[in-house]
Design a binder for these strands. Structure first.
Lengths: 191, 191, 191, 191
DNA sequence: AATGAATGAGATTTCATTCAT
DNA sequence: AATGAATGAAATCTCATTCAT
C-alpha cells in the first residue's frame, strides 16, 4: 500500500561493495547512501544502525557459503567426492559474486563470535567430516584439526590470491587442482 | 631471526595491540593514549599522525617477516630444506609475538600497495623460488602461482586457526607437519 | 463539569499520554503512531503538524479546566462557597483523567502566551474574584496577588503530589481539606 | 599543565540558562556552545553527553536547595522558627539565582527518580519534620502528608508566580507572609 | 483514508589534530 | 617532553514531513 521499498537492495548492495573496497569503518553512511542514490536517512528505514546492516549482510553472506557444506553433508558421499564437490561449489559461488566472499573474510574477526557458538558452524562441521572419514578408515590417523585447517587455508587462499590479481579468474578452473591437493593432503597425512 | 625488541615504547605497543583488537579505524588516538598511560598530545611527539604511526608499525612488522625469506633465500638450499626452515622460522616469530603477525594481516589491505611495487616483496620472492625449483628439476612442471598460493594458504591458516583457538599454541610444534604438507604439495603437483 | 469525551481518537489519546510521559519534544510522531496502532502518515490526516496537534490538545484540555472557573463565576456565590466548589470540581476533573491536568502543566510554559493575552484567563479571573471579595468586605485587606498564588499553589501541589505517589488517589477526598485551607488563608491574611 | 578549563563554567552556565528558557529537549548542543562561545565538541571534554550534563546540573542545583533543609534540621528549632527560616533561606537562594530553581522545577519529572530513593531527600525530610512536630504536641493531629504538600505548594508557587511576572521580585520580601501562612496552615489543620 | 519509503534538515557525538601552558 | 582543553570537520542517527501507491 505504501511505496514499495525500491531502494532497499541498492542500499545493501552498495554497502556490501563499499565495505569490501574500503573496509567497514572506512565506509560512511554517506558513502553508502551516495552510491545507492538515496539520502542518508533512507538507510534507517531498513536497518536500525550501521552495525545492524553489517550484521545482516554478514549473516546473509555467511549463510550462503555455509549452506553449501550443510547440503553436501546431507548426502552420504565418499570423502574424496565430498571434498571435490565442495571446492567446486565454493568456487562457483565465489565467481558468481566475489564481493560476498570478500565481505565475509573482512568482518569475520568482529562477528564470528555470533556464529561460533553454533554447534553446526561450517568449520565445526568440516572438522567432524574429516574426523569421521578417519574413523571409517577412509583416511589414516592424523591430527584432524590441523588437516582441516590446512585444507581450508588452501581453499581460501586461492580466493584471496584472485582478489590480489595473483590468480586468474574464474576460480572454478582451479577447483580440480585445489580439490586434489586437499584430498592428497588428507590421504598422506600421518599422526 | 632477530630478537624481539625488548622495549617498544608504550605508545607503539598499545597501538599495535589495539589495532589488532579493534581494527585501525576502530581505534582512536584516545584509546591508544589511555592504554599507554599518556595523554593524546603525547603521541604527536613521536609520530606526525595516526597514519604515520600505522605505517611505521606496518613496515617494522612486515620487515620482520619478509627478512626471514630474504635471509633464507641468500643461502643456496634445496627446496625441501628451504620450505621447512621457512615455516619453522615463521612460526617461531609468530609464537614470539602473535600481535605482530595479526597486525600485518589486518592492514595489508590498505598498505600493501606501498610494498607490492617492491620487486622483492615476499610473495614475489616465494613464487620465484618455487619457479626456479621447477626449472632446476627439483619439482615437476606445474602451475607455480597456484602452488605458491596454496602453500602460503596452509602456512597462514594455521596462524589464523591459533588465533581463533582451533589450534593449540605454540605454533612451532606444527611446523614440521605444515612444512611437510607444503613440500608434498609441490612435489606431487602436476601441470 | 462536562462529561469526559467518551472516545477520543486513538491518535490524540496516545499523543496526550506520551506527551505527559516523555515530554512533547521527547515524543516523536513515530512514537505516537506506534502507540495508536497506525502509521506515521495517518497523523497528518487529522492534524496539519505536530505543533497543531499539541495546540489542539492544549486548548481542549485548558478549556476543560478554565470553564469550571467561568461557570462558577457566573453565579453570585459567597467567597467561601466559591472556593470550596472550585476545588471540588477541579479535583473531580483531575480524578477523571489525570493526564489532561498533567499535560496542561507540562506545556503551559510554551503555549501560555497564546492564552495569557486572554483577559479572562483563569489566573486573572481568580485574582479578580479574590480582589472583589476584599472590596465587598468578605475578606480583610491583603496582597491579593500573593493570596491568589498561594491558594493556587496548594491546589496544584496536591495534584503534583498525587502524581508522585505522595498523596493517595482519588484527590476528591482531599477537596474539603484543601478548600478549607484556602479559605482560612484568605480570611486570616493581613495587608 | 595543560590549558586551564576556561570554558567549563561558561558551558554549564549557558546550558542552565537555555534549559530554563527553551526546555532541555528544546535546547541543542549547538545552542549551548554558541552561547558559551565555544565549539560543540568542547562540551564533551567536560561531560560525557547532553544527558550527563543535565544530570550534573540537576544534582548540583538540587543539592543547593536540599542542603538548606538539612542544615536547618541539624539545629533543634521550634516548628514555627524552622518554617520561617526555611522560607527565608529558600527565597534568598531563589533571588540569588532564579535559574537554578527554575531548572530544578523543569527537570524534576525526568530525574527525580534518581533522588527519590534517597531516604533523606528533602520532601521526605520535610514530612518527617512536620510529623515530629505533631508528635511533640507543637501541632495538632492532622494529615501530615497533606499539610506538608500544601506548605510546599505555597512556597513553590510564589516562585513560579515571580517567574511569570505575577509577583514582584525579590521574593525575600514575601518570605514572612508565606512563612506565616505555612505556620497557620499547620497550626489550624485538623485530622 | 491509510501506508510506509524516502527526504532534508538538524541533532548528538566522535575524533585527529593543534596549541597555550 | 608532556598536558589536556579546544577546534573543526565529519560521522552516526533522528525526525517532522511529503508523496507515490
Amino acid at each position: 500500500m505504501g511505496r514499495p521499498p525500491l531502494k532497499k537492495s541498492a542500499i545493501e548492495r552498495s554497502a556490501l561493495e563499499l565495505f569490501v573496497e574500503k573496509g567497514v569503518d572506512g565506509t560512511s553512511i554517506r558513502d553508502i547512501a551516495q552510491r545507492a542514490g538515496v539520502t542518508e536517512g533512507a538507510l534507517y528505514r531498513h536497518h536500525r544502525s550501521k552495525d545492524d546492516l553489517v550484521r545482516h549482510l554478514f549473516l546473509e553472506s555467511y549463510t550462503r557459503y555455509s549452506e553449501v557444506i550443510k547440503k553436501l553433508n546431507a548426502e552420504p558421499l565418499p570423502f574424496k567426492t565430498f571434498v571435490q564437490s565442495l571446492v567446486k561449489e565454493f568456487y562457483r559461488l565465489y565467481d558468481e559474486d566475489p564481493y560476498v566472499f570478500q565481505f565475509v573474510m573482512i568482518v569475520r574477526h568482529h562477528l564470528l563470535d555470533e556464529v561460533r557458538s553454533d554447534e553446526k558452524n561450517p568449520i565445526e562441521l568440516l572438522t567432524r567430516i574429516v574426523g569421521s572419514a578417519v574413523k571409517k578408515g577412509e583416511l589414516p590417523r592424523q591430527n584432524v584439526d590441523l588437516t582441516t585447517q590446512l585444507m581450508l587455508g588452501m581453499v581460501l587462499q586461492a580466493a584471496v590470491a584472485q582478489q590480489y590479481g595473483r590468480l586468474k579468474a574464474p576460480l572454478v578452473q582451479h577447483a580440480d587442482a585445489v580439490g586434489k591437493a586437499c584430498v592428497e593432503l588428507a590421504v598422506r597425512a600421518t599422526a
